[in-house]
Nucleic acid binder design. Sequence first.
DNA 1: CTGAGTGATTTTCCTTTGCTGTCA
DNA 2: ATGACAGCTTTGGAAAATCACTCA
Length: 498
Amino acid sequence: MSSDEEVWDEINVEDKIINTDTLKDTNLHPETVNVEITNETKRISPQQRLMRRIVHRVHFMCLFVHYKKFNLQLNSSLHKSHLLSILPESFLNVKHLEPKKMAVYLKLLSRYLHSVFKIESLDDEEPLGLLEAFQQRKVYEDQFVAFFVIIMRSLGLKCRLVVSFNPVSYKSTSHITNPKKRIKLDETSLMEYPLTWAEVLNEFDKRWIHGAVKDITVRYCAYYGARTVKLRTEERLWDYMLSLNKKFYVKPEDKLENEEFLERQRNETLPTTKTGFKNHPLYVLESQIRQNQAIYPKTPVFGLFNGESVYSRSNLKSKEAWLKEARAIKDGEIAIKTVKARTLKKKAASEELADNDTCPLYGIWQTRPYVPPKVVDVNHGKVPRNEFGNLYVFRPEMVPDDCCHIPYKGIDKIAKKLDIDYVDAVVRFEFNRGRSFPVLEGIIVLEKHRDILVEAYEQVENHKVQSHFEEIQGKVINRWSRLIKKLIIRDRVNKLYA
DNA sequence: CTGAGTGATTTTCCTTTGCTGTCA
DNA sequence: ATGACAGCTTTGGAAAATCACTCA
């Protein structure tokens, strides 16, 4: 980690991206040059902001990948046997200890490991690998924690490597030039759980890496909702990285912990400042309600802040936006709010429709899960379709019963050839030339046709690959035979006339 | 030092079903 | 002939967030 950081420290983000665009802007207003220059120096330019964001992201991803790999190393049986070999016998019997005894045990183990390994800082030297570090009994802090985790895991205890990321922030230069770092083995939280922990603690973002990856920040931040969450700049990137590692089942201890996290969030004390309420994940003040938000129901009131009631937050969405989440508006529901809608330019101005300029918004309590259209008769039936002759499949659950989505390119032609009824699948909308257009990916067919279609598709694809191969093979053979014929001719000519 | 307030600037939100020319 | 496909052009206005600052 420290090596990563050194690398980042060397990059002076500010200096590299000053280009002519910013100068051009200042020159546009010669009469206000002074103002412009002070603004220019005080506020970072869009280019700088972009660069910082990229640096932030790359740093974040490097940390993520580094620790994921690091953690995988900790399961190696070689490391396990090495570490177990230096452990006194008294440490080996650790299963089924009471939480309190466990805490004592962990303290002793930690003390013992400290006596064996010398912890070095990583200032100048190239860090040693885990194996060399073990042999030389010299480790840096990450490795010390790693050894702890290895021992725990080889003794059959569940142990996480907890890593707190502190990627360079793009919000303030001080973070880029002086990243503060604090790594320590925290033993207090070990007391609370029968599970064993090793953690590497850092300033705000705390992540769990353990094959699967999990965000456990809530446990460590007192003001998670009011403060910490807002320091996150790349929530979408994080969600994406997590989704790559998602496990498809929830282990019992995870379930328990997830509940604990929810509980912790709920129990977090109300923010004490107005800014603390701004964009708080749970609470909202009526005066801060946004255009696409509403307070419903008006109970419970969580408390008072400056004489204002504190409510829970609920977002409103348009019918179309709900559909993208596979939810439909219940019958007879009336919009909570109405906002101005963006009416796209009609082809002819005269066709302008008057009723199109508002957008009704609904809350989640006014919706139900989307029910896809039914196949009328499975035996002879056709795939249902909407007024445009296709189907919305924004989410997997939006595929009608007895139907399936085959997302292969070119599969529609095969279905057509086999005379199988199908409809195009609309997976999202995209904007182009000021208008939105559906993006089609694959087709929807009756479930009973799936196998025959996929088989046919594979055959066609195989055939394509095969014929491409044969084409190339033919060319190669042709060239070789021409070359050899010509060589034979040359040889004969040489013999006859040389 | 902290948080409310401020103005300039950036981001988000809303929407929702082509056209044309080229080439195999 | 037919159909696949690339290139086209790149909404737009309002509201809210964000940033970098000031001030109490």
